[in-house]
């Protein structure tokens, strides 16, 4: 295995899956924006349209899971797992602490759908941690 970790076949497959899920997310999100009116009633059609981007989120999570399964290099896989753990700690800490703030004091409400983007920010934090720890 002579190549950079990001040019391994597993990572290339991950990037392909990630981009497909991203395209699905953008497409279904735009469909929802166009077709679902403001203050839409909770009809099956509107609920379905609102849930469609969720399929893309599932796709992202599935792609990340497959990356861990398909990575052949155990050390690089350990670094990815560590990154995911840091991201999970980051997202849970911020959402949990912010939830307590919302409970006790008047602060802007953190939308639930922001937890996944928070987790993705945590991935960047994990990546930085992997770098600074000399891994």
């Amino acid at each position: 295995m002579t190549c950079h970790p990001r040019s391994t076949p597993a990572f290339r497959r991950y990037m392909r899956r990630f981009l497909i899920a991203t395209g699905l997310y953008i497409g279904t999100f735009m469909i929802g924006v166009r077709l679902v009116p403001d203050d839409a009633p909770p009809s099956p059609l509107y609920i379905g349209l609102a849930l469609l981007p969720g399929l893309a989120i599932l796709g992202w999570i599935w792609a990340m899971g497959r990356l861990l399964i398909e990575m052949e290099d155990e050390y690089l896989r350990m670094l990815e797992v560590r990154k995911f753990m840091i991201a999970t700690a980051f997202a849970l800490t911020i959402s949990g602490v912010w939830g307590l703030l919302e409970l006790y004091v008047t602060v802007p409400r953190l939308p639930v759908f922001m937890i996944f983007p928070l987790w993705c920010v945590g991935l960047a934090v994990g990546q930085i941690w992997n770098r600074v720890s000399g891994a």
Binding site: M1, T2, P5, E72, D73, E74, Y75, L76, A135
Partner: peptide, 10 residues
Amino acid sequence: ADKLGVSRQS
């Protein structure tokens, strides 16, 4: 690394 089939980082 090549002999072991792992990355140089490993």
